[in-house]
């Protein structure tokens, strides 16, 4: 059953990859956002869903990746190099930081992880020489053929490819010894310690894996929009939205995280288009309603239908 789920997941995402064949610039832009959100939700699920540590550090990783990659791109580095650098920086930083932050549990960890983004934002603001500070950072247009549509296709495919990579790694984690250990830690950390799980290492790894792909998505985002500024990429909403998406889809489920991201983006787009003035309010209301009536997320609908049909 688990295998079927994973196949469904990859099928869904592969299907999304055909978008350039019949998409226009707007649909491609939406598709790029869908992939970016899915990367964030799937990544958050590693630390929040598998390890049970509610992290608000997604915005920090995203901003760090956007700036680390963006600065390199602005200096003329190749995109792949910028991606690798951003990913490595986020992974290494999260390993080090995780060993300290993950000593805190529950709300304390949530607040500490929230602070990481704020600290990085201030650092970025202050390091004017490197990042342009509050004036933002311009990333030159790469030599791109095919005009607007060609560029949109390229950025969509890049984000989509990164989503596939993130999914492959996360599905592997779920099935590996690391995933098993994280499940033990989530359910009872002191008992996990007692049977020989190196909890500090495992939690730090989970934190690092929740950051690496988000940071790379940040770099792609910077290359895509050509101009970034601290309030944009360190936006607190980037920390909150992935959590809502994961909850919407079903906590702890990777398929759920992807579904949640897509559905969330759909709702967001519709609401934003029709209720420009109060769209965050309407969006919040919808999320509350969904969580009230579907507390175990979208993935539980199937289960519910099955048990509903079965004789009581």
């Amino acid at each position: 059953m688990k295998l079927g789920r994973d196949l469904l997941l990859f099928g869904l995402v592969l299907l999304l990859g055909t978008l350039p064949f019949f998409g226009e610039a707007y649909t491609l832009r939406l598709g790029t956002f869908a992939c970016m959100y899915a990367i964030m939700a799937v990544s958050w699920n590693v630390i929040g869903g598998l390890a049970g540590y509610p992290s608000f550090a997604t915005a920090a990783f995203f901003g760090l990746g956007a700036y680390a990659g963006g600065v390199l791109l602005a200096k003329g580095a190749a995109l792949l190099l910028a991606l690798a650098f951003a990913g490595a920086l986020a992974f290494g930083g999260a390993m080090l930081l995780g060993a300290v932050l993950l000593r805190l549990r529950g709300h304390y960890f949530a607040i500490a992880s929230l602070a990481v983004g704020e600290v990085l934002r201030e650092l970025t603001n202050t390091a004017t020489n490197l990042t342009g500070g509050g004036m933002g950072l311009n990333i030159p247009l790469g030599a791109m053929t095919g005009g607007i549509l060609g560029e949109a296709t390229f950025h969509f495919l890049a984000m989509w490819g990164l989503l596939l990579l993130a999914l492959a790694v996360v599905v592997w984690i779920e099935r590996s010894k690391l995933g098993f250990g994280l499940a033990c830690i989530r359910q009872n950390e002191s008992a996990a310690d007692m049977i020989g799980v190196n909890a500090t290492l495992y939690k730090s790894l989970a934190f690092a894996f929740s950051g690496v792909f988000v940071a790379m998505a940040g770099t792609l985002y910077a290359a895509w929009v050509h101009y970034i500024e601290p309030p944009d990429v360190y936006d607190i909403l980037f920390a909150v939205k992935p959590i809502v998406m994961a909850l919407l889809g079903g906590l702890g489920s990777t398929v759920g995280a992807v579904l949640g991201a897509f559905v969330f983006l759909g709702i967001e787009e519709v609401v934003w288009r029709n209720y420009l003035q109060v769209h965050t309010g309407v969006l919040g209301f919808l999320v509350v309603v969904l969580l009230l009536f579907l507390p175990h997320g979208l993935v539980s609908i199937g289960r519910r239908l099955r048990t509903g049909r079965a004789p009581a």
């Binding site: 010894k177 098993f180 250990g181 499940a183 009872n188 996990a192 049977i195």
Partner: peptide, 20 residues
């Protein structure tokens, strides 16, 4: 201190896997 969501077998497997 069991891992409540894991099966009984997985509980014991985890102990065998991580300690050796």
């Amino acid at each position: 201190q069991p891992f409540p969501e894991l099966s009984v077998l997985d509980n014991v497997s985890a102990a065998a896997l991580f300690s050796n």
